[in-house]
Each structure stands twice: as C-alpha cells, then as structure tokens.
C-alpha cells in the first residue's frame, strides 16, 4: 500500500517536472529538429541560435527593464502604504475603525484583476494610458498586505512601544525602530509574493500598455510568441519563454524554503 502510493507520487512528480524540462530542451534544439520528430528529450547538436535570434527579434532587454521597474515600483509603494495602514489598524483606536476595516476588506473580494474594464477608464481619465505608472498604480494599495502586517504588528509587545515613547521617540521612530525590525520575516514573505505576482501579471498590462517602452516581459513574450505560431519557430518561442521564467525559477531554487514558507504565510488568515 505504502509502496503503491509512493510509486504513484513519483510518477506524478515526474509528469509535473516534464513541461519545464521539455521547454528547456526545446530551447536548445535546432529549428528543424522539432518537426522531424525523434525522441523529444534529447538534442544531438544543441545550439544557442534560438536565444540569439529571440534576443535579436524582440527588445527583451527593454522588457526586462520595464518589468524590473514595475515590480519594484509596486513593491516599494506597497511597503509604505501597508506599513502605515497596518500600524493604524493594529495599534490605534479611532472613530470608524470597523467600517474602514471592512472597506479595506472589500479589495480582497473585488481584486484589481477583475476590474480590468473600469480601471482602464480610470487610467484614461487620468491620462496615463500606456505608461509604466498605469501598470503599477492599481496595486499600490494592498489589503492583503495590510492584513498580513496588521497581524504581525499586533504581536509586538505593547511594552516595547510604550518604552520607546517614554524615551521620547516620535511615532515614526517607534515604527522604524520597534515595529519594522520585528516584522522582517513578514516583509520578506510579502515581498516575495508581491514580486512573483507582478512579474507574472498579464491581462492588465496587456490592455493598458501599447509600446515597447512600457510593456513588461509577459506581454512582450505573448506578442513575440504570437508572431511565430508555426512549429518551425518553436525553438525561438521556447527560448523566449525560458528567458522570461528563468529569473523566477533560479530565484525559486535558491530561496526555495523562503518561497514556500512565504506563500504559506500568505494564506494563513
């Protein structure tokens, strides 16, 4: 019974790994080999030609740059907004706290992803269509981040807060010296989830960007892939795909424990 189950799991594990392995191998295959057939997991004469061609055909450097700006532009502003709001919800008593909290909660249900159409209207009213700013702005408030940080801030002993005040710290000094350092693991968790989420984001940047200067990698990849749908260019599309996923996959294999615990963290209410 035990052996049977482990057998099943090992087979499933191999099946799960195959797509990554295959796209990787295909990206090193000469153009005609894919069509000719043969054993799909072996390349007799591996080549970098696909990467060179893909790199030359589409402005991947610019796309990388855009994705970096977008991902970190989102993260930095999020860190500021969620820290301030989380501190208020965790440690202050004020009028309307409950109502405001519920309003924040609303963003968890109606996430920016499903508001593609009305958010486009907002961005166009602001005159920001086709800018990197437009890709970032809808995510600058993060209810998820606020809840995550609020939970963490609540666990900071109140005595520490009071002690620092007695020492004459202003609220922002207390926040900086007491709360933020003790929430470091949560910040890392939030950052990993946020970065990988926005690295992958597609539909919103697809509709809101329309030029090489503002387009992130995912949209660039989709347009690149669409221009080569025939089998002969598989190698190139595979190379493009590998280029887009590699930074994430490498980061994942290096920081695997951190990633898993961060994603886990993100789900615990």
């Amino acid at each position: 019974m035990k052996k049977l189950n482990y057998g099943i799991i090992i087979i499933l594990g191999i099946i799960s790994f195959i797509p990554l392995l295959w796209v990787f191998i295909t990206s090193f295959s000469p153009g005609n080999q894919v069509i000719k057939g043969g054993f799909p997991f072996w390349v007799s004469n591996p080549t970098l030609e696909n990467y060179v061609k893909a790199w030359e055909t589409a402005p991947f450097i610019q796309y990388y740059f855009n994705t970096f700006v977008i991902v970190f532009g989102v993260l930095i502003v999020q860190l500021i907004t969620i820290t301030l709001a989380a501190y208020a919800f965790a440690r202050l008593n004020f009028k309307g706290k409950h109502v405001l909290f519920i309003l924040f909660l609303l963003q968890l249900m109606i996430q920016p992803e499903i508001l593609l159409f009305p958010n486009y209207q907002v961005i166009s009213q602001l005159g920001l269509v086709n800018t990197k700013l437009a890709v970032m702005m809808p995510y600058w408030a993060s209810a998820f981040g606020v809840f995550l940080m609020r939970q963490t801030f609540k666990q900071v002993p109140y005595d520490l807060d009071e002690a620092s005040r007695i020492d004459g710290c202003k609220w922002y000094q207390t926040l900086w010296h007491v709360y933020i350092p003790s929430a470091k693991p949560t910040y890392i968790a939030f950052a990993l989830v946020s970065v990988s989420h926005h690295w992958s984001n597609f539909m919103w940047p697809l509709i809101i960007t329309d030029s090489v200067d503002s387009r992130p990698l995912t949209v660039g990849l989709a347009l690149f892939a669409q221009s080569y749908e025939t089998g002969a260019q598989w190698g190139m599309v595979a190379a493009g795909t590998v280029m887009v996923i590699m930074p994430l996959v490498i980061a994942f294999f290096i920081f695997q424990k951190q990633f898993v615990s961060s994603f886990m963290h993100s789900g615990i209410k």
């Binding site: 907004t81 709001a85 109606i110 920016p112 009305p118 907002v122 408030a141």
Partner: peptide, 28 residues
C-alpha cells in the same frame, strides 16, 4: 487629534483603494 492621526496613516492606502476599487466598482 488621535482620529486625524489614524486617518492620516490610512490615507495613502485609501487614495488607491478609492481610485481602483471603490470608484471603478460603482462606475461599473
């Protein structure tokens, strides 16, 4: 004053929630 302070802390989040969650929802 305490209330105002708390609202000030919530304000940055609230701008973007209003612009990209509340307003577009009502607009739809």
């Amino acid at each position: 004053r305490h209330n105002l302070f708390a609202y000030g802390l919530l304000f940055p989040s609230f701008i973007f929630l209003t612009l990209f969650t509340f307003y577009p929802t009502l607009k739809s």
